[in-house]
Every structure is written in structure tokens, then in C-alpha cells.
């Protein structure tokens, strides 16, 4: 596998991301609005005291970070692959000298870089305006949190890709995507896992969903080595599983491909 071609794909898709200016602007407004609404909600909740070990300051930063991961990873990979498979334009992408899974990943990376930069800046600005910096924040630990964030992004990307590949077999696979989205939303993105009932927490530990947004956001906001060693190895495992699943679904799908659209 020659890495150079994949890097070129990343570069071109990064360039391409600049084209969607109004799209990006709309996304930024939506992001700010979202954070603002939940900022007020959390402020109201925190009137009656602290919850599950998060201060208001921390919970707002937590929210900014989980949203950053979710907005930053908005690549449309699911709908794109769905479209590619259903319209048959996947035919163009199959007979090229690259691995389709990694091509799509490189393709998405360019967009994700772009998104993470613009949303990252906005997230920090919003956090500072709304609640100010986190007290006693250990900036030196941030790279470890960001590393966990990268793993979260990997898990999310390859799971969505796996779901996208179900289009090879199923006429309508949108339901999977919606369920997946809701699971990520409920198990960590919207509220920290610690807020969930005990039994659900026990379930969530065994599922990949909370390792996408909750684990990295928690590590970024309130770093501890104990947590790091508890979640990062699990993230590595899930990332690995997700990649294998995507590759497996791809080769399975290609073998049974029924070219659509003449």
C-alpha cells in the first residue's frame, strides 16, 4: 500500500472542503445555537447543585467537546456510500488501484481536518465566553485527550462506513443510521455517561458508542491517568474492530455486488 496516493486524496478533499463556505458557515451558526440552548439548560439544572462530579464549568466544556467531535466528523460518509452503492457510481471507484475503504477514509480525513479546525476554534471561543477557562487546567495533558479524540473519530467513522455498506444488501438501511445516531447521542454525546442509571452505565461500558464522544471529552475536560488507562485501550480495540468490520463488509459487498443503474 503506497501511502502517498492516500495523502494526495487527503489534500484534495481538504481543498474541496473550502468550497462549501456557506455550508460551513451554516454549520457554525447551528453549532453555536446548539451550545447556547444547552448552556442555558445546564445552567438551570445546576441551580440545584452539582451533578455526578461535574461542575457547571466542566459540563459546558464537556458539551463543547462532544459537539466538536460530532460536528467535526460530519462527513456524510454514510449517505455518500449509500448513494454510491445505490446509484452504481461505486463502479467508478472499484476499478482503481487503491483500497476503497482507505480511499474513502482519506477522502473524509480532508473534510474532518477542515471541520475540526473551524469548529475547534469556535468551541474554544464559545467555552471561554460562556463559562471562562477551566480552573487549574493542565494544558500538558491535552494531547492525551486529543489522542483519545482521534480514536473516537476513527471508531465513529468506520462504524458509519460499516452501516453504509449494508446498502449492498438492503434496499433501505437508513433506520440503522438513525438508531446509531441516537445511541451515540444518548450514550455520551448529550449527557456524560455518569449521569445515566447504573444499569445502563454497565451496559454502555460494553458498547462502542460512549467511547466516541464521552471518553475523549471527559479526558479533555478532566484528565486523569486512571481514566486514560481505563478507556484508551478499549478505544483502540473498538477502532480495530470497526476497521476490520468495514473491510469485511466491503469485501463481502463487492463479491455480491449487483450493479445498479445499468
Amino acid at each position: 500500500m503506497k501511502i502517498k496516493k492516500y495523502l494526495t486524496v487527503v489534500r484534495i478533499s481538504f481543498q474541496n472542503a473550502f468550497v462549501y463556505r456557506s455550508n460551513a458557515l451554516g454549520g457554525l451558526v447551528f453549532y453555536a445555537l446548539f451550545i447556547f440552548v444547552f448552556f442555558n439548560l445546564w445552567r438551570a439544572i445546576y441551580q440545584s447543585g452539582e451533578a455526578a462530579g461535574y461542575s457547571l464549568n466542566q459540563i459546558i466544556w464537556y458539551l463543547c467537546m462532544t459537539e466538536l467531535i460530532v460536528f467535526g466528523c460530519k462527513t456524510g460518509i454514510f449517505s455518500e456510500m449509500n448513494e454510491d452503492v445505490k446509484s452504481g457510481s461505486i463502479a467508478y471507484q472499484l476499478n482503481r488501484p487503491y483500497h476503497y475503504v482507505f480511499y474513502q477514509f482519506s477522502n473524509a480525513l480532508g473534510t474532518m481536518f477542515f471541520n475540526l479546525i473551524i469548529y475547534g476554534v469556535l468551541a474554544v471561543v464559545l467555552g471561554l465566553i460562556m463559562v471562562g477557562p477551566l480552573p487549574d487546567y493542565k494544558l500538558s495533558m491535552l494531547p492525551f485527550g486529543l489522542f483519545s479524540g482521534m480514536l473516537g473519530i476513527l471508531i465513529n467513522f468506520f462504524l458509519m462506513m460499516t452501516l453504509g455498506f449494508t446498502a449492498f444488501k438492503l434496499e433501505d438501511n437508513l433506520a440503522f443510521f438513525l438508531i446509531y445516531q441516537k445511541l451515540v447521542f444518548m450514550l455520551g454525546m448529550f449527557i456524560p455517561v455518569e449521569f445515566l442509571p447504573k444499569w445502563l452505565q454497565n451496559v454502555a461500558v460494553w458498547l462502542p458508542f460512549s467511547y466516541i464522544a464521552w471518553a475523549p471529552a471527559k479526558l479533555i475536560v478532566d484528565f486523569s491517568w486512571e481514566l486514560f488507562w481505563r478507556v484508551v485501550p478499549v478505544q483502540v480495540c473498538w477502532a480495530f474492530i470497526a476497521i476490520i468490520l468495514a473491510i469485511f463488509m466491503y469485501s463481502y459487498g463487492v463479491r455480491s455486488l449487483q450493479a445498479h443503474g445499468g
Binding site: K4, K5, S87, Y92, P97
Partner: peptide, 22 residues
């Protein structure tokens, strides 16, 4: 069907294909 990047000029698509084909 198209193999070109819709929003980019053809030169970029050519550069990409050049890289893909080594």
C-alpha cells in the same frame, strides 16, 4: 456517471488520479 470532483477544477481531479495511478 462522473469521476471528476464536482466542485473542483479538472486539474485537481487530474492531480488526484495521477497520484492514484502512481
Amino acid at each position: 456517471k462522473s469521476q471528476l470532483w464536482f466542485h473542483l477544477p479538472p486539474t485537481d481531479s487530474f492531480a488526484l488520479l495521477g497520484a492514484i495511478y502512481d
